[in-house]
Amino acid sequence: MISLIAALAVDRVIGMENAMPWNLPADLAWFKRNTLNKPVIMGRHTWESIGRPLPGRKNIILSSQPGTDDRVTWVKSVDEAIAACGDVPEIMVIGGGRVYEQFLPKAQKLYLTHIDAEVEGDTHFPDYEPDDWESVFSEFHDADAQNSHSYCFEILERR
């Protein structure tokens, strides 16, 4: 099963200049909980913004210009990325925008964090048809001392 995991502000903004323009430790914990011990696929820009392999996960970098870091697996196509994951129950696609666009048609599940923030962004989550998805989990949280904005975790499964 292919799943996408993303944090989205208003207007589906997911990033600005290779960074997330908010401070939500709870979302980072949600991300870790849902990706640990699963292969993660990301684009080169996302890889560069993280700066290191995510521990406890097979890191697969999709790029037309593969790098030389041998701590991760470099691939040039969506099919190659899927094959590099091996026989696993769930593959997690973690961004960025172009990689989400490439995998959305193949995805069966979306793990979304909806952030109540209007922020400037240069990267967006692809538009998706809500009628194609069923919400199977939703959990709202107010902003607090650690988390700069209110947010809602949601899991959607393709109908």
Rank of each mutant, 00 (worst) to 15 (best):
A84Y: 11
I91V: 15
E157M: 06
V10R: 00
R71E: 09
Q102I: 15
D87N: 09
L28P: 00
K76P: 05
G51M: 07
I94A: 03
W30F: 15
K38F: 13
V88H: 14
I50T: 04
I115A: 11
R71Y: 07
D132H: 08
V93M: 03
R44D: 02
W74G: 06
E129C: 10
V10H: 01
H141E: 06
L112Y: 08
V88P: 13
Q65Y: 12
E134G: 12
E139G: 06
D144T: 05
Y100A: 04
L4G: 00
K32C: 02
A29Y: 01
V119R: 15
L28K: 02
A26I: 07
E120R: 15
L54I: 04
R159E: 14
F137D: 10
A117Y: 01
K76E: 14
M20T: 00
C85A: 10
E157G: 11
Q102M: 11
A143M: 10
H149F: 00
L8N: 03
Q102S: 12
P39S: 08
F153T: 09
G51I: 13
I60A: 08
D131F: 10
T35S: 04
L112T: 06
M92T: 15
Q65S: 10
P55A: 07
P53N: 07
V88G: 11
N18V: 02
C85E: 05
S135R: 15
R12T: 03
L62N: 02
S135K: 15
T73P: 11
V88M: 11
T73I: 06
A29M: 02
G51L: 04
L112I: 10
E120P: 02
R52Q: 08
W47I: 15
Q102R: 11
D69A: 09
N23G: 10
F140T: 14
W133P: 02
F31A: 00
D116I: 15
E48M: 10
I115T: 11
L36G: 09
F137N: 13
F31E: 00
N37S: 08
E134S: 07
H45P: 15
A83W: 12
K58I: 06
A145E: 08
E139S: 06
T46N: 02
L24Q: 13
F140L: 14
G97V: 00
T123Q: 02
V10K: 00
P66S: 12
H141A: 05
P105V: 07
A81G: 06
S63N: 01
P25A: 02
A9C: 08
A26E: 02
T123Y: 01
H124I: 10
E101N: 06
I91P: 11
D127M: 13
F103H: 07
P66E: 07
D69Q: 05
I155A: 05
G86R: 12
A9P: 01
Y128N: 04
C85S: 08
A9E: 01
D87C: 04
E139F: 08
I91M: 14
P130M: 13
V75Q: 09
R44C: 14
E101Q: 08
G86M: 10
S138R: 14
V40K: 00
A9D: 02
E80F: 11
G86H: 09
N147F: 00
G121K: 00
E134A: 08
F103L: 03
A19I: 10
H149Q: 02
D87R: 08
P105K: 09
F137V: 13
A26N: 02
N147P: 01
P66M: 07
P126C: 14
V93P: 02
D79K: 04
D142T: 09
E48R: 14
A117P: 02
Q146P: 04
E48N: 07
A9Q: 02
A29V: 02
K38Y: 12
E139Y: 05
V13W: 02
T68H: 13
F137T: 12
S3K: 08
L156R: 15
P21Y: 01
L54S: 00
N147E: 05
A84D: 06
P53L: 10
S150T: 04
G97A: 09
I155S: 06
N37V: 10
A81S: 04
V78D: 13
S135P: 12
P105D: 05
A29R: 03
E139P: 04
Q108V: 06
L112M: 09
R98I: 01
A107I: 15
S148G: 00
Q108F: 08
H114G: 14
G67N: 08
R52N: 07
E154A: 15
I60Y: 15
R98W: 15
Y111I: 12
A83L: 09
K106Y: 13
Q146I: 09
R159N: 12
E129S: 10
P105E: 09
W30K: 15
P25N: 10
A84L: 08
I91Y: 12
A143R: 08
T123M: 02
P130I: 13
E120Q: 13
S64K: 09
I5N: 01
V136K: 10
E139A: 06
E134I: 10
A83S: 08
L36W: 05
S49C: 04
L4R: 01
P25K: 03
D142C: 07
D122H: 00
A143L: 08
L62W: 02
C152W: 13
G67R: 03
F137Y: 03
M16V: 13
E120S: 06
G56T: 07
S49P: 01
V78Y: 14
P53C: 04
N59G: 10
D70P: 10
T68W: 07
I5H: 00
M20W: 01
A26G: 02
D122L: 00
R98E: 01
H149R: 06
L54A: 01
D79Y: 04
M16T: 10
Y111W: 04
E157C: 06
A19M: 04
A84F: 14
R33M: 11
D132G: 10
V10N: 05
G43V: 01
P130H: 14
N18K: 05
L24I: 13
D79M: 08
P66N: 09
S148E: 01
K109F: 11
S150Q: 02
G121T: 00
Y100S: 03
M16H: 01
N59F: 05
M16G: 01
K58F: 06
F103M: 04
D122F: 00
E101P: 00
G97K: 02
I60E: 02
A7N: 02
G121L: 00
H124L: 05
K106D: 06
G96R: 01
P126V: 12
S150Y: 05
D122R: 00
V13M: 05
R158P: 05
